[in-house]
Amino acid sequence: MDRSTLLPMPIDIDIAHVARLARLDLPEDELDTLRSQLSAILEHAAKVQSLDTEGVEPSNHPLGFVNAFREDVVTGSLDRDEVLAMAPEARDGYFAAPPAMSQE
């Protein structure tokens, strides 16, 4: 496999799209700075592509654990009022939020 085809260089990032995915409402000038910083970091990070990983399995856990199960029994949970006391806004025992979609 020719690894040089894995990635277009130099790395061009649609920074506004990435910021939207990450739910970050950032001003234009900050996005420009971030685009160039991220390109530099990604060009360094892209060096991992030079490694031959043909037939190598990814490690998703450093010691290779898979699943951890516990007995299916009811246990206590946090006190609702205490948890809601930390919320920016709570109403009738729920977290309160504006509508998911615009009213217009």
Binding site: L6, L7, I13, I15, V18, A19, L21, A22, L24, L34, L38, I41, L42, A45, A46, V48, Q49, L51, T53, V56, E57, P58, S59, N60, P62
Partner: peptide
């Protein structure tokens, strides 16, 4: 932003997937 980009569609295998294989090596 870096992580969101590395996980986003089209880049996952080249970045995040490859990094985890490097971890195995």
């Amino acid at each position: 932003l870096l992580g969101t980009y590395a996980l986003s569609a089209g880049y996952y295998d080249a970045f995040y997937g490859q990094a985890h294989k490097a971890r195995t090596v």
